[in-house]
Each structure stands twice: as structure tokens, then as C-alpha cells.
Design a protein around this nucleic acid. Structure first.
Lengths: 194, 194
DNA sequence: TGAATTTTATGCAAGATGGTACAAAATGAT
DNA sequence: ATCATTTTGTACCATCTTGCATAAAATTCA
């Protein structure tokens, strides 16, 4: 074990990042002040700056962390051996559960980065990357069963269902309604594609 | 004609409201400063306040105006006499065109109110009302042809497609891709429902 | 024990922001 | 022409915001 010199940090980086993401998710990028964020993370502003850089860097780090946790939450459903329909339904159920957690419902990326995207290229890129990353994850699973030429269209359709779920959760839709919407969408999409 | 006393306003209320909506659409609610908004509207701040109230009132007025313009833009497609599939495709094409106009792509309501909704009840209500308003408009058209029990589910599905389109436009999707997505979604939904 | 190093905490500075007070300007009524 | 009325434009204020400077605290190494 390497003993680091100097005063040891009082914060846990992972926990702090998650708290930062939650603060941004609750208030949006522009409205979340660094005081709020620091309070949420249990740090003070200078430590926050030292650890994560300025506000935009914090936000980008929070977006990336949230995306990583999101993918962690949904990937088990896609990794299973069952039929495609079950995998997709499990994927959406996991996403709906993930979006329902915390102080405010909805997706940090899909519900707050949309507001900032036109004003900032890096945030727009993070938004686009998140969408295409999830699309790739879905496409990889779909490719195990669907015909070659159908994969891309089906993956895009499923990403769009996910986006709908994120926004409707933000608007107050309850989880049961979202789950039944997901089920109907999966059924319709597979009926068309297969 | 009633001659109003006092100095006549130098601004046109409708044009100003549209400019305000565009400023909020470009930057989001929190990041748009009243200076920017005033510049966009060609007014100065005191006139802005006198005409529309404080920042939140301006935003709520902009949301309502944008929603009204949006419904105006898409309602002709739904009013036509053709088959349901054509009506829905026309609806989405009109929406895609509307979302592509102006300085920043995407929907003012669906791409900026999502960030503020958890922090403000009135904004959350405006978001939810906009979604349910469009849903009602779609349901009314769908009810002209679909079986009674299918109307609600189909309308919800179409609203969700619209939400996807709004967010994906914000993320930089080009109009051609969005149109083909809309076509595929309509085909899939109608195949299931009818 | 003392020097070096890293983090924490208080506090500050420069600037932006929402909102308003007040005088000047432009119009209708008398 | 004068007054009442409404809008405009300048200037201002109090507050909040980001970001940093600096000193105190906590730890490792010699």
C-alpha cells in the first residue's frame, strides 16, 4: 500500500461525484450553484475545485459518471441469455428504476444537458455520445438475434423509447405507466422487425 | 378604434414574445439573462417587466406562446381528411420542421423545461400540460378511425415519438433521419393497433 | 522533533444578475 | 398650450456567483 503524503482527503471521490450528479440532476446545470453542490458533496468550494476543476468540468465529470452508473444499471438485463424481447423489457425496467431514484426523477443527461447543449459544444458532445453509446450497447445485444439489416433501425427505435421514458419520468409519469409503455413499444418494434 | 392615451409602445407584443421564447430556447431558463432577453426582444428591462412580469412569468408566457405556435404548426396535418397514417406522418414532419427553425434546434418546452421542472411546480405543470395537450390533440384525430380501446395507447405512443424527436433534434440529429424515424414509428404503431 | 506536503476552511474580489426608481419623451384630452 | 397618462432609457442597488488567495490543520518522511 502506498502511503500518500500530506493531509488525507476527507471525502470519497466516488460518493462526492454521485452527490454532484444528484445536485445537477435536481436543479439543472445553470441553476445549480457551487455552494449547493459543495453542500451536497460535503465539501467546500476550494476542495471541490481542486478535485474536479471548474463548474463545467464538474458537470462533464458528473455526466460521465452518471452515464457509467446508468450503463451499469441496465447492462445486466442485456447480458442475459433469454430472448430479445425479455432482454429489452428488462433493460427498460432497469432504466425506469434508475431514473426514479434520488431527489428528482428523470435522466441527468437527457433532462438537463438538453438545455445547455446549444450553448456549449462539449456538453452537446456529451449528450450525443451518451445517446450513441446506449444505442451501441443496444445494437450489440440486438445483433445477437436480429437480421443484419434490421439492427440499426431497431436500436434507434429502442433508444428513442428510452428518451421518451426519461422525459416522461421528469414530467411526473409514474413508473407503472412507463413500464407498460415500454412493454407495448418492445412488442410493436419486434413485431415489425422480426 | 380606441385611441389609448400615453406614449405608444415601441414593441409588438407578439414579436417580442416570440423573441423571448427564442432566447430561452437557445440558452435555457436559468442561463438566459434578462439582458440577453431584452436585447433579443428589442426592449429594455423595465419595459420587459412592465409587459410580462418577472423572469419566471416571462418564461411561462414564452412556454405558452411556443406551445400555441407549435399546435398551430401541426394542427393542419391532423385536420386533413386522409388516412390516419398520412395524418400522423404529416404531423411529425410539421413538428420536425418546427423544431428545426430558429437559432437552436429542439423544443423549448421539452428541452428546457425538463431542467427546471423539479425545482418549480408551475414549470412542471406547464411541461405536463403541454404533453397532455398534444396527447389530447392526437387522441382526437386517432379516435376518428381507431377502435375505442386503442386510442389512448396509440396517442401515448405518438406523444412519445414526438418527445424523442424533440430531444434528438436538440442532440443534433438531422431532419432526414428524424423523418424516417417518424415514418417507421408510425408504421410500427399502426401495424400493432389496427 | 521538525520539514515537507497535501487538504481544509475562512474569507475576499470582481463581475453578473434580477429587479426597481426616476426622470425624459411621446401621446391624448381639455 | 397645458395637463394627465403611458412608455422609454439611464442608472442604481442588493444579492448572488464563480473562482481564488491564504492561513490553519493533518499527515508522512527524515
Amino acid at each position: 500500500m502506498i502511503a500518500r503524503r500530506g493531509r488525507p482527503p476527507a471525502y470519497d471521490r466516488e460518493a462526492a461525484l454521485m452527490a454532484i450528479a444528484e445536485a445537477f440532476r435536481l436543479r439543472g446545470y445553470a441553476a445549480a450553484s457551487l455552494d449547493e453542490i459543495a453542500r451536497a458533496a460535503g465539501m467546500n468550494r476550494p476542495s471541490l475545485f481542486a478535485a474536479f476543476g471548474n463548474k463545467k468540468a464538474m458537470y462533464l465529470a458528473a455526466l460521465e459518471d452518471y452515464r457509467r452508473r446508468m450503463e451499469q444499471a441496465v447492462s445486466p438485463a442485456l447480458a442475459g441469455e433469454g430472448p430479445l424481447g425479455d432482454a429489452l423489457t428488462g433493460f427498460f425496467d432497469a432504466a425506469i428504476g434508475f431514473y426514479g431514484e434520488g431527489a428528482a426523477p428523470g435522466c441527468l443527461v437527457l433532462c438537463t444537458a438538453t438545455a445547455e447543449a446549444p450553448a456549449d459544444e462539449e456538453i452537446a458532445a456529451a449528450l450525443a455520445d451518451t445517446i450513441s453509446g446506449i444505442e451501441a450497447q443496444l445494437a450489440a445485444r440486438i445483433a445477437r438475434e436480429a437480421a443484419e439489416c434490421e439492427v440499426a433501425g431497431l436500436a434507434q427505435l429502442m433508444v428513442s423509447v428510452l428518451i421518451c421514458i426519461a422525459v416522461q419520468a421528469r414530467a411526473g409519469a409514474d413508473e407503472a405507466a412507463l413500464k407498460s409503455f415500454a412493454r407495448a413499444s418492445v412488442a410493436a418494434a419486434l413485431r415489425q422487425a422480426l
